[in-house]
Simulated assay, not measured.
Amino acid sequence: MDSLVGAEFAPKSTYLNTSTCGLLPRRAVEAVKELADELADGRPGGSGDFGAVDAARASFARLVGVSGERVAVGGSVAVHVALIAASLPPGAEVVLPEGEFSSVVTPFVVRGDLKVRLVPLDGIADAVGAGTALVALSSVQSKDGRIADLPSVRAAAAASGARILLDASQSAGWLPLDAGAYDYTVTAGFKYLLCPRGTSFLTVAAEAQESLVPLHAGLLGGEDPWGSTYGPVEEFAASARRYDEPPSYLSYHTAAQSLPLLEEIGIEAIHAHNTALAARFRAGLTELGHAPVPGDSGVVAVPGLGGRQPELARAGVVVTARAGILRASFHLYNSDADVDRALDVLSG
Rank of each mutant, 00 (worst) to 15 (best):
M1N: 03
D2C: 02
F9L: 02
F9C: 02
A10Y: 00
P11H: 11
Y15D: 13
S19Q: 11
L24W: 15
L24D: 09
E34R: 15
E34H: 13
E34V: 10
D37W: 06
A56L: 00
R57H: 06
R57Y: 05
R57T: 06
V64G: 02
V64L: 10
G65H: 11
E69W: 03
A72F: 00
V73K: 03
G75P: 05
G75W: 02
G75L: 12
S76G: 15
V77A: 02
V79T: 15
V79S: 14
A82N: 12
S87G: 08
P90W: 09
G91F: 14
A92Q: 01
V95I: 13
S103Q: 14
V105P: 00
T106H: 15
P107D: 06
V109I: 13
V110R: 15
K115F: 02
V116G: 11
V116K: 01
L118W: 00
D122P: 04
V128T: 06
G129K: 10
G131P: 01
T132Q: 03
T132H: 02
L134W: 01
S139W: 06
S139K: 12
V140S: 08
K143L: 15
D144A: 03
R146G: 02
A148V: 12
D149G: 03
D149K: 06
P151M: 12
V153P: 06
R154P: 04
A156M: 12
A158T: 10
R163N: 02
R163Q: 13
I164L: 14
L166F: 11
A168N: 10
S169W: 15
S169C: 01
Q170W: 11
L177I: 06
Y182D: 02
D183M: 04
T185R: 10
A188I: 04
C195V: 06
P196K: 03
R197K: 11
L202D: 10
T203K: 13
V204G: 10
A205Y: 08
E207H: 13
A208V: 04
A208M: 04
E210P: 00
S211E: 14
L212F: 07
V213Q: 08
A217C: 09
G218Q: 08
L220T: 14
G222W: 09
W226Q: 13
G227N: 07
Y230R: 13
P232F: 14
E235G: 05
F236T: 07
F236V: 09
A237I: 12
Y243Q: 04
P246F: 15
P246N: 14
Y249P: 06
H253L: 05
A255Q: 12
A256D: 03
Q257C: 07
L259I: 04
L259V: 01
L262T: 03
I265T: 01
G266S: 01
I267F: 00
E268H: 13
A269G: 03
H271W: 15
H273C: 08
N274K: 08
N274Y: 03
T275P: 05
A276F: 05
L277W: 03
A279T: 10
F281P: 00
G284E: 09
T286N: 09
T286G: 12
E287Q: 14
E287G: 15
A291K: 11
P294D: 04
V302Q: 00
G304D: 06
L305I: 03
P310H: 13
L312K: 09
A313L: 11
A313Y: 12
G316Q: 04
V318F: 08
R322T: 10
G324C: 05
I325D: 05
L326W: 02
Y333Q: 05
D338P: 01
A342Q: 06
L346I: 13
